[in-house]
Design a protein around this nucleic acid. Sequence first.
DNA 1: CAGTGGATGCTCT
DNA 2: GAGCATCCACTGT
Length: 217
Amino acid sequence: MSPSKVSRSRKDAPLEKVGRAFFDRSVHAVAPDLIGMVMMVNGIGGRIVEVEAYHHTDPAAHSYRGMTLRNAVMFGPPGYAYVYRSYGIHWCVNFVCEEAGSASAVLIRAIEPLTGLPTMRRRRGLDDERLLCSGPGRVCQALGITDALSGHRLDTPPFSLLLPPEKPDVAVGVRIGITRAMDYPWRYGVAGSRFLSKPIKPLEQSATVLASAAAAR
DNA sequence: CAGTGGATGCTCT
DNA sequence: GAGCATCCACTGT
């Protein structure tokens, strides 16, 4: 599947599976294209509404200082899941992008729940639909993602990734929950969605933000 | 809503 | 031993 085909609008078309070539592109191209896609694990999931891009030149990327045991999957070929433990408690899932060795990936930060809500509620121990998948740790808990799925292909079960019939407008914001390279404008999401981990504020046009945005091109 | 602090365990220095 | 790509409960508007 070609990148140009991916970004085309698909009104009235059935959901279409995303192939491995989708991820063999710049993280800064893949990340906004992921917004609106349906992501499921064993048939449970929903619409991706928030992601963050982590290029290997980004000081906040796990791969920034080279390969280690934890981040090895990031250095492999595109189209694989990289799952890591966060704050000793949570799991977070990334989609590896770009050619093997690039070590760049997109963090899945929030999903709008569509299928398997009873299972999600049981796993999360919550009722509020808005709190089921609105954060990277919550996404993994609700979908049952652990390090057992790290290094697993994204185009084979239990994963399924589907293109939506219509692409939502994608908002760009600065990253959150991170201390290094905090003002990198590489957070993408559906503006105004109530399922975001936090609202996306309009980009501040600071020199730092503009410089890093330019560097991403 | 906004801000604060604790839980918790792995990775890398 | 420090520092997390986080979440939750609790406080005070």
